[in-house]
Design a protein around this nucleic acid. Structure first.
Lengths: 153, 153
DNA sequence: TTAAAACCTCAAGTTATATTGAGGTCAAAC
DNA sequence: GTTTGACCTCAATATAACTTGAGGTTTTAA
């Protein structure tokens, strides 16, 4: 089998190429690999080679990060992709569905935050009973402090 | 002047009290002070004392953080509060107005993200031309990588 | 008055998400 | 064949936002 043929069928992408195409640095690809977010194999000279679908994985990682999802969570969700075969469009759609709900929740949270922010910060009382910021049943994880009660000052 | 009187008029809050009332740790109050987010004075024994409005400052800091605003940005906005007098309700309302716009922007961004996430991740092309995630004129600062173009895989 | 609780400072540690650099190897172009 | 750019590993550094701990002082309450 000629070399060209081999290249065509296996799509060995170098780390530099993947970096350029995906817009992340080579060091980030190394980092993602140590974190188990992407995979590569090595050529004869110990250099990384990637399948084309790594580009979509990276796109998905970046999209999920923009949604506020941590790399650990992203890793867990990516783990639901098929291990043996290249993911299909359906596989990716299933992923996006998982995140859609989180995104909806986050948007709803931000909207509650917006609707109340004047009432909470701008008003004279700062009573937190109705406020999404300080209601411990209504936060998004960043704020574990629970309810905070403030009196007039 | 009796001591009680002094306490009543000056509202010397101890760091422990402020911590308990605001729901943050004493170490966090120290930290915020080194960062210039809150202020205190010292009593005879070098212990911190606070005015009551520190409680609102902390509430505001926490609210802003929940909106995704960094401490540096919060510091800048808090710096627009009056320096000499205790901030009034109007002062606080002006603050919240500054953040309202940022919050609106962030919500709009998340909504665009949601509206496109299926199209971007779930679809077969991953062409990024219409996608808010990869459009460098439409991000929120976390993602400096600029436009990323991906082809079919 | 004395013991416990609260406070002080300053340095180091923590987590997440990477980036940078040193020292060395591999591959591609001339 | 040699030079140059791409790649390798591993350790250190960076940033944000805190937390922890050691060693010592002050306040409070019995």
């Amino acid at each position: 089998m000629p070399i060209d043929q081999k290249k065509l069928t296996e799509a060995n992408l170098t780390v530099g190429y993947v970096a350029k195409r995906s817009g992340v640095k080579v060091s980030t690809l190394h980092f993602y690999e140590t974190k188990g977010l992407i995979r590569s194999w090595r050529n004869g000279g110990n250099q990384r080679r990637y399948k084309k679908d790594v580009l979509r994985r990276i796109a998905v990682i970046k999209a999920a990060q923009a949604m506020g999802i941590t790399l650990d969570e992203i890793k867990q969700t990516l783990a639901t992709l098929p291990d043996q075969r290249t993911p299909t469009q359906k596989d990716w759609a299933a992923l996006s569905k998982q995140w859609q709900a989180q995104l909806d929740e986050r948007i709803a949270y931000m909207q509650r935050l917006r609707d109340r922010v004047d009432g909470c910060i701008g008003c004279g009382c700062l009573s937190m009973s109705k406020c999404p910021i300080y209601n411990k049943n209504d936060h998004l994880g960043e704020n574990q402090s629970g309810a905070i009660l403030l009196e007039r000052d």
